[in-house]
Amino acid sequence: MPSGVHIHNVRGQLFAAAERVLVRDGPEALTSRAVTEEANCAKGVLHRHFTDFDTFLTELILDRVHGIEDRAAVLSAAAGTGGVVENLTEALRDLFGPVTVAIVALIIFRDGLRARLRQAGLTGIPLVMQATSALAAYLAAERELGRLSDDTDIDTLAPTLVGAAHLLFADRTSAPPRTAAIRRTVNGVVAGALRPPRA
């Protein structure tokens, strides 16, 4: 590739290229060469902006983490509107898109990356942890509003929802689960905590 081609928003283009490679080919295919080829830029571009490839991947994941945190605020603001099951179903469809599922696989696949993420202050499996926190905040808001019972165990419900959703979405080779399947799963997890609508 010619090295003199100027790229606008280099980070964004490289991140988008990495996500496309991940979703299409899986974590084992993700290399700096694959990213720069996908972004149609010179091989040295990535290393001019990032110290090494794990630094690039760490920044990619941090960018995704911030995106989930932004969506968490929107989800919490939805408390008290619509149906609890419907809100959770939509949130899980949004949180577990193909890119998130592929990045979770990447984190599990690369030991060095997990160590780098811990140094950046991310514990557990990033994205999964933030998704769990987002759902917990929403559930807490709904409990406060009286749409969930006072004894609702949010610390159990939130990770159960995330784990069940991840199992539904985890197969990268097939189509994403249907909304009805996600709703069924959500209802099965939270039905015991729901209060009937007030007359």
Score class of each variant (00 low, 15 high):
124 G>M: 13
101 V>T: 12
103 I>C: 09
128 V>Y: 02
93 R>W: 04
132 T>P: 01
112 G>Y: 02
133 S>Q: 08
101 V>G: 04
115 A>S: 13
134 A>S: 15
111 D>I: 00
107 I>E: 10
91 A>Q: 02
90 E>L: 11
124 G>P: 10
124 G>D: 12
123 T>D: 12
102 A>M: 03
114 R>A: 14
97 G>H: 09
111 D>W: 07
94 D>R: 05
98 P>A: 15
103 I>Q: 15
125 I>A: 01
103 I>L: 15
110 R>M: 09
107 I>W: 06
116 R>E: 12
130 Q>D: 08
117 L>Q: 04
125 I>V: 15
135 L>G: 11
98 P>T: 13
102 A>Y: 03
94 D>T: 07
132 T>V: 09
108 I>K: 14
126 P>K: 03
95 L>Q: 04
93 R>F: 09
99 V>C: 13
116 R>Q: 12
88 L>H: 01
101 V>C: 09
104 V>C: 04
119 Q>S: 13
130 Q>L: 04
101 V>M: 09
89 T>V: 02
103 I>P: 03
96 F>R: 06
121 G>M: 12
134 A>H: 02
100 T>W: 05
126 P>E: 01
123 T>S: 14
132 T>H: 03
123 T>Q: 08
116 R>G: 02
105 A>G: 14
105 A>V: 06
125 I>N: 01
105 A>E: 15
91 A>V: 03
95 L>G: 04
136 A>N: 09
102 A>L: 02
125 I>C: 04
93 R>P: 00
120 A>N: 05
109 F>M: 01
135 L>C: 14
104 V>D: 05
92 L>G: 06
122 L>C: 11
88 L>T: 00
133 S>N: 09
126 P>L: 06
92 L>T: 07
93 R>N: 09
132 T>M: 10
95 L>T: 00
101 V>H: 04
121 G>I: 10
107 I>P: 00
123 T>K: 01
121 G>C: 10
109 F>S: 09
136 A>Y: 07
105 A>R: 15
94 D>E: 10
95 L>S: 07
116 R>S: 15
135 L>I: 13
134 A>F: 03
128 V>F: 04
104 V>R: 14
